[in-house]
Design a protein around this nucleic acid. Structure first.
Length: 380
DNA sequence: AAATCGTGGCA
DNA sequence: TTGCCAAGATT
């Protein structure tokens, strides 16, 4: 059959002799350069799984302290399954992508309840657990159970696109199978886990996004893009949209019981984490074509909190602090800090949210953006 | 299937 | 400062 699509029927294979030479050189490089990481002490699935979840879209040096703390707090999958959610989220605080933490506990309960505490050993079965997708399933199955299956992450996309000159757009999930088919025959059947970890180490230490040093290694002859000077043309990846700017207001409300916090909804951005009361300017119907004076805007915000939240506020005013800017994957918040005085007869129990003293906050999971707000306030 | 979901580092 | 990247999964 003739195909008109560009990248699905290109030759990304190696000859058997080239493949054998590549495998030998690649595994030798790994044996001489492998990193000593906390989750490589042994191949217990609980430890490997935890590391793989934490490492999703997160750099190694960021993960290490979280990994140690998490393991100390929840030593076994049964401990994690039985953990209170507040402690779980507090332990994950600051690491980001917080649904990972909740999925972690869901999967722990699946292992305990559905699998009688025995981890499934194939990638296909592992992928049925919450938070485990194709990459993580391949990583655990190969590292812990010796299954010959690729673990295709950002490193694998970069390494193999450059090795074999694969020009399929890695941002398109439909192209994943092209990499899967190209990588599978390259995996040494006796060392699949080491091979996948070698890809990660080589990708993060040598075949890097910027300033790659492939040419300084014994792998250089195998990299087709290096041989013709096109290394940096790979991987091919379409660009992501820019972060949407969002104007926010945070209101600092003090009482003798501490500061007022609100727990965010259980779904969506920063789910279940606590922040000062926040409102988006958009929700005040402050639009570009509706020009308000600062006084009018303040009045809108005050009215919003009084009506929607029934707060007994007096004298909402600007803090005079520089706005806090916080960038998410797809949003850019610019947060203006406001302060409010309570009415003399305000009923604290009536406020929506929780009053926390500084000591009480030690047990409350706060997102980094909230820590930035508190830090800005402390500069007074 | 494109959008959503955090944070820190770096040129 | 801005944009991109870093061991992706979910809906």
């Amino acid at each position: 059959m003739q195909s008109t699509t560009s990248s699905t029927n290109k030759n990304y294979q190696m000859t058997p002799s080239e493949r054998d030479a590549f495998q030998t050189a690649f595994m030798t490089w790994y044996d001489e350069n492998r990193r000593d990481l906390p989750w490589r002490q042994n191949q217990e699935p609980y430890r490997v799984w935890l590391s793989e979840i934490m490492l999703q879209q997160t750099q190694v040096q960021t993960v290490i302290p979280y990994y140690e703390r998490f393991l100390a707090t929840f030593p076994t999958v049964a401990d994690l399954a039985a953990a209170p959610e507040d402690l779980l989220m507090k332990t994950w605080e600051g690491l980001g992508y917080y649904s990972r933490a909740r999925n972690l506990q869901k999967a722990a309960r699946q292992v305990v309840d559905d699998y009688n505490g025995q981890w499934p050993i194939t990638a296909a079965e592992l992928e049925k657990l919450a938070g485990i997708g194709p990459y993580t399933a391949g990583a655990i199955a190969s590292i812990c159970f010796g299954e010959v299956v690729p673990a295709i992450d950002g490193n694998a996309f970069r390494v193999f696109s450059r090795l074999l000159k694969i020009d399929a757009d890695i941002a398109n999930p439909k192209n994943r199978h092209i990499f899967y088919d190209a990588i599978l025959p390259l995996i040494p059947k006796d060392r699949p886990g080491d091979f996948n970890q070698a890809v990660m180490d080589f990708g993060s230490q040598v075949c890097t996004a910027k300033n790659p040093t492939v040419g300084e290694t014994a792998l250089a002859p195998f990299f087709r893009s290096y041989q013709d000077g096109t290394l940096l043309d790979y991987p091919v990846k379409t660009k992501k949209a820019k972060q949407k700017p969002v104007a926010m207001f945070a209101v600092v409300i003090r009482s003798q019981k501490g500061l007022l916090f609100q727990k965010r909804p259980s779904t969506g951005l920063l789910a279940n984490l606590s922040t000062y009361p926040l409102v988006a300017a958009e929700d005040l119907q402050v639009t570009d074509d509706e020009l308000l004076t600062p006084e009018e805007q303040l009045a809108r915000i005050e009215a919003y909190f009084k009506e929607a939240f029934a707060l007994e506020l007096q004298q909402l005013h600007e803090s005079g602090l520089k706005p806090v800017v916080h960038v998410f994957t797809h949003l850019k918040w610019t947060i203006t800090l406001l302060e409010a005085q309570l009415a003399a007869d305000a009923d604290l129990a009536f406020f929506p949210g929780q009053w926390y003293t500084e000591a009480q906050l030690a047990d409350v999971a706060l997102p980094t953006v909230q820590k930035k707000l508190a830090a800005r306030l402390a500069t007074n």
